[in-house]
Simulated scan of single mutants.
Amino acid sequence: MTGRLNLMIPHDGSVVVCDGRKALVLRNEGHPRALDLRMERVFEAPPNPPTREQGTDRPPRVRLGNRRSSIEQTDWHRMAETRFALDVVTALDRIDPLLALVVVAPPRMLAELRRVLPERLRRAIVAEVDKDLTKHPVEEIGRHLADA
């Protein structure tokens, strides 16, 4: 994110702060110029053990004629993040009415959320912020967004 966005989150607007393991759904109970974010819901992804416990450490091999080649190893953690993004989006899609939505996530998760967002949620988005704020208290998230 570069520069100031003049981010305006309307009263009763929603904010989702998400990374690959945790998502916070917040609602602005204040004014667009004086945010008062309140926690609505918290999502935690299920445990995601190391790759060595989920599959083989060695990439599989394939024979192409007289040549052998390896196949890219499955990224189990990325697959878990994709499933988590879909779970978060499914929950967001149940918010009714959804006046406005601000999405705050690190770049990789932001891209994953964009990929799975239905049209109704896309239309509600007023801003996207590429930061990881999931470990911050709600008041600090509000300050980051007010300064955005």
Results as ranks from 00 to 15, higher is better:
120 R>L: 08
47 P>I: 00
94 R>P: 01
27 R>T: 04
134 T>Q: 13
64 L>I: 03
66 N>T: 04
58 R>L: 05
134 T>P: 05
130 D>S: 15
45 A>W: 02
67 R>T: 00
23 A>R: 12
85 A>T: 00
19 D>F: 07
1 M>P: 10
138 V>T: 13
67 R>E: 02
92 L>T: 00
62 V>T: 07
87 D>R: 15
17 V>C: 14
84 F>D: 05
46 P>S: 02
137 P>H: 14
12 D>M: 14
63 R>F: 04
44 E>Q: 09
37 L>C: 03
133 L>D: 06
90 T>D: 14
100 A>T: 01
4 R>E: 08
35 L>W: 12
137 P>Q: 15
144 H>P: 03
89 V>T: 09
138 V>C: 09
53 E>S: 02
114 R>W: 10
115 R>E: 04
62 V>W: 06
130 D>M: 09
21 R>Q: 10
32 P>V: 03
72 E>P: 02
105 A>T: 03
148 A>M: 08
96 D>S: 13
111 A>F: 03
38 R>T: 01
9 I>N: 15
38 R>Y: 07
10 P>G: 12
141 I>D: 10
44 E>W: 04
101 L>E: 03
69 S>L: 07
46 P>G: 03
5 L>P: 07
113 L>A: 05
81 E>K: 13
1 M>E: 09
62 V>P: 03
10 P>F: 01
93 D>A: 14
29 E>N: 13
22 K>N: 07
51 T>P: 08
129 V>C: 08
121 L>W: 12
137 P>S: 14
50 P>H: 02
16 V>K: 12
36 D>L: 07
112 E>M: 12
2 T>Q: 15
128 E>C: 09
83 R>A: 09
36 D>C: 03
40 E>R: 14
122 R>V: 00
26 L>N: 07
54 Q>N: 01
139 E>S: 12
130 D>N: 13
86 L>R: 15
29 E>A: 07
82 T>K: 15
15 V>N: 10
127 A>F: 10
97 P>E: 02
137 P>M: 12
113 L>H: 07
104 V>W: 15
121 L>V: 00
95 I>E: 12
34 A>H: 14
28 N>V: 00
75 D>Q: 01
79 M>A: 10
3 G>Q: 13
102 V>Y: 13
